[in-house]
Design a protein around this nucleic acid. Sequence first.
DNA 1: GTGGAAGCGGAAGAGCTTTCCGTTAATATA
DNA 2: TATATTAACGGAAAGCTCTTCCGCTTCCAC
Lengths: 213, 213
Amino acid sequence: MSEQPDRAVGDGTPPRRRRVDARQNMDALVAAATAVFADEGVDAPAKQITDRAGLGVGTLYRHFPRRSDLVLAVLRHEIDTCADAVATLGAAHDPETALVAWLDRYTALLAHKQGLAHALHSEDPAFEALRGHFDARIEPALRPLLAAAAATGRVRDDLDAQELLHAVALLCLPVPGEEPGHRDRRLAVFLDGLRCTSAGEGPAPSPPARRPS
Amino acid sequence: MSEQPDRAVGDGTPPRRRRVDARQNMDALVAAATAVFADEGVDAPAKQITDRAGLGVGTLYRHFPRRSDLVLAVLRHEIDTCADAVATLGAAHDPETALVAWLDRYTALLAHKQGLAHALHSEDPAFEALRGHFDARIEPALRPLLAAAAATGRVRDDLDAQELLHAVALLCLPVPGEEPGHRDRRLAVFLDGLRCTSAGEGPAPSPPARRPS
DNA sequence: GTGGAAGCGGAAGAGCTTTCCGTTAATATA
DNA sequence: TATATTAACGGAAAGCTCTTCCGCTTCCAC
């Protein structure tokens, strides 16, 4: 939640401030990356970012050794804001309404930040830190809201917060040639599935899940 | 559905047979690719495939200029078999049961062939041919079955075959650290959403879809 | 057989990520 | 202010990939 500290913390390391030019360069890189990611997605070449920031590649890698460190720096604030929205919505609406409204907020984040949904599902270990922060902030925020909604009996309770987040994120992935409305429609179908089960305790009435091969 | 012809077809091109060594090499490449894809997914380096086949990279690119040409050669038979299963299931069951059973078959294909689901959603133009064949074979097969199921009134009719295929394929994508059962559970939720709407004509009762930004 | 085209192999070129280290310049200290 | 220290910079270079290209080889029709 906090930015990287400007001082080394903990055990007796000498208290040396981070150089201010270093801090400025980091900020310039984040600003450049924000612009480039918006134009070309999170897979844009590193060179493009460093050129835009007027810095060398070495500097980029010094501050952001893995790609997700940079993506995370760009998105940290928005991810946190999305997580914090759970509390606001939960206070203003009944649990079911709040859940749906928050999921709407969540899909907006995924849809608006081109490449975020994709990065979250990348097998590439370079994106681990991003997934880590995402899970650490979003999942704990959603959990109580989902539990409250399930307690009303109008939302199924056999899916945990993690699964719900993953499912929705998958459905937000862009499909190459598709029309714009499709994403919303498949999300609507999924949400209906999330609600229509009236069973309070037992397993969902859908066909038994197949064992994965 | 058919393999590439051994003779040039159509307009007056001279009728020259494909050389038999070329044919053998193509087969060797497909066999090698099948093995490598199974081990490492469809993104495995080309070198690995040619080494396994004992051929040069030039030969690979001569026969399969784009990656999806190779993926397609590896999977063509299984995709076609899956498409053909629609007719069999449709003849043996009522439409709703047949639809669910076929979707089960479809998810098995996506889950079993590591990387297929991912390749289908890749932005990379190198996978266009694969998507093309997929859409050309699978979508027309599913369409009448979905229409029949919708006609029973027990399956919603506001989603076309293409959208259904895409949605299910997205939900089949692997999520990096997740437990095996999750995929089946989110599919089950989606299927419930596909069924629970009793409205015959009107739009689904879920909240209005937001415009994508 | 033999001529010519189809096909082969791997070198070469281009693009990318990531590392490394000589140089530059910010900061602490006097 | 002057100087020593060292964090931080920049870009060359290494390493990986995909893709193209072209001289050489092999097959096939005649």
